[in-house]
Amino acid sequence: VVIFIVVFATMFYSIYAHRKSKGHVAAQFHENTTVEIIWTVIPFIILVLMAWPATRTVLAMKDTSAADLTVKITGSQWKWNYDYLNDGFGYFSELSTPYAQIENREKKNEHYLLEVDRPLVVPVNKKIRLLITSSDVIHAWYLPSAGVQQDAIPGFVRDDWMKFEKTGTYRGQCAKICGKEHGYMPIVVEVKSEPEYAAWVADQKKKVAVAGGEVDKTWDIKDLTARGEKVYAANCAACHQANGKGLPPAFPPLDSSKVATGPKLAHISTVLNGVTRDGKPTAMVAWKGTLSDVDIAAVVTYERNSWSNHTGDAIQPSEVASAKVAAK
C-alpha cells in the first residue's frame, strides 16, 4: 500500500508539473532508450517486491491441515446450512431481519440484513476447517473480518480454514450472485470461549435426540399442517408460491396438481427424491437431505390440504421413513 501511494504521488506530481509547461516551445525529443529501460525495470522490481509477501500468504492460506474442528457449509437459495461433521448435528441459518424493515415500514435494526436466526458457533483460538459446497447455484461464503471468501460450488466441495483470536460476533454475506435474494443471505459467526462452546455443543446434541422422539409419535393433522405451512413458506414458496399456483411454465402449480391430490406415496417420493428429467435433476431437487422426516411429512400434509386440495390425508413421519427405505 505504501508503494501504491508513492507511485501515485509521483504520478500526480508529474501531471501537475507538466501543466505549467504551458507556452513552452516544444522540445522535439521522442526517443530515449535509457529512460525507457529504467521505467520498464523499476515497475518490475516493485512488482517483485509485492509478489513476494503475497506468495507466502497464499501458501499459508492454502494449508488446511491440522484442523481442530470441521464444519461443512452448504449454500442453498437463500440460506446456509452448517453441518458439524465431528458432532453429528447441523442446522440452517437464515436471515432474521423482518420484512417490514426491508420494505421500510419499520425502523431498521443495528444489524439490518446482517442478522440470522441461528449463527454458526465456533470456539475461539481453534483452527476450523470449512468444507464449502452448494446444493443449487454458486454462492460464496464471505466473512471479510476473517479474510475468508470461498465460492460454494454445487457438486464440488472446496475447503478453507479460519481461526479467531477473540470471542464475539463476526458478520458477512453471500458474495456470489445467486438469484433474487442474493442480498439477503447473511453469514453470522459467533465465536465462543471453549467451555461455552462445549456447553453449546452438548445442548445441540440433546435437541437432536428430542427430534428423534418426534419421529415416532403419531401426529395430529392440525399440527402437521401448521408445521407444514412454515416448512412450505421457508422452502417451497420460492418456486411454487405461497398461493400454490407456482410460476408456470418454470414452476408447476401444486394447487390441484395431480401429484398433490393423487396417491400419497408418489407425492412423498417426489418431495423426497426430487424430480429428474432425462436422468438429470431439475430445479425440483431432492429434499431428503435438507428436510427432516417430520418436516417432509408436515409439508406434504399441508400441500394435500391447502388451497383447493382437500384430500384429508395426514402423513406421518413414519410413512416418510418407510418411503425412504422403499426407494433404496
Binding site: H18, K22, A26, F29, E36, W39, L47
Partner: peptide, 28 residues
C-alpha cells in the same frame, strides 16, 4: 497472480511514454 502483475509493466511503459510526450512540450 504473477502473470497479471506483469501486465502492469507494459501498461506502465505506456503511461510513462505519455508523460514524456508532454514533458517539455508546448501544451494547450
Amino acid at each position: 497472480m504473477y502473470a497479471t502483475m506483469l501486465i502492469a509493466v507494459p501498461t506502465g511503459v505506456k503511461v510513462f511514454n505519455w508523460l514524456a510526450t508532454m514533458w517539455k512540450g508546448s501544451m494547450t
